[in-house]
């Protein structure tokens, strides 16, 4: 089971993507790869009547997600080589790049889009919770990058005291994989399965 997880404060996030780039820089990711995604979820309408009066029920909120190091990780379950595994010390889910064959099964299965096959490297890649830093008693890079302090990381019990297990659109129902991402949802947050809203920034997430 996981020991650590992420915390996301949806009332503070302004969708700047600093977390995405701090991670890209630390992990030296080229174009085409990011271990973190900031989704912008938009719904409602802004309209104007015949007299020119504007009305709006438009809502937009953001969610920043990397890998949730799920308790019921489907990536580990489906991996044919057992390359996808939990680090015995930290419990964070990592790829053993020496074993991985890059079949992409994890990438297909994960409903959070965490793993992805890097063909240039020959294996699957994803957020590993900055496993190396955690072992060194440091925090993941994204946590300390966020200018509005919207991200956190820590022991799951601590996170459970701060927020609720993520179960908002556009992310999936938490029961699929039991994600270790705990959030403070914003006022605009909508439940999973909302159908009158959409991911408004598909070109901004990898």
């Amino acid at each position: 089971m996981s020991i650590y997880g992420f915390y996301f404060d949806g009332t503070r996030c302004t969708a700047c993507k600093t977390c995405v780039y701090a991670c890209k820089d630390k992990n030296d990711l080229n174009l085409g790869f990011a271990y973190r995604r900031v989704f912008e979820y938009t719904g409602g309408d802004t309209t104007r009547d015949g007299a020119g009066a504007i009305s709006s029920d438009c809502f937009t909120y953001s969610v920043s997600v990397s890998c949730n190091h799920c308790d019921n990780a489907v990536c580990i379950e489906v991996c044919p080589t057992a390359a996808m595994h939990r680090d015995p010390q930290t419990g964070l889910i990592c790829v053993d790049s020496s074993v991985c064959i890059g079949c992409g099964y994890c990438a297909l299965s994960c409903p959070y889009r965490a793993p992805k096959v890097d063909r240039a490297k020959g294996h699957s890649v994803k957020c590993d919770g900055c496993n190396d830093l955690i072992k060194d008693d440091k925090a993941p890079v994204c946590i300390l990058a966020c200018p509005t302090r919207a991200l956190g990381f820590g022991k799951i019990s601590e996170l459970q005291a701060k927020g609720e297990q993520v179960n908002i659109a556009p992310l999936p129902e938490k029961d699929y994989t039991l994600p270790n991402m705990y959030i403070k949802p914003s006022k605009d947050a909508r439940p999973v399965g909302t159908d009158n809203a959409f991911i408004a920034n598909p070109l901004e997430v990898l």
């Binding site: 600093t18 995405v20 780039y21 820089d25 925090a139 300390l144 990058a145 966020c146 200018p147």
Partner: peptide
């Protein structure tokens, strides 16, 4: 490229963290 940051829970602590441009 990292930035000045303190891992605390105090939103008032002064941390001139660089934005995505600084990190790029």
């Amino acid at each position: 490229v990292e930035t000045y940051a303190i891992n605390d829970d105090d939103i008032d602590s002064v941390q001139p963290r660089a934005c995505l441009r600084g990190r790029s």
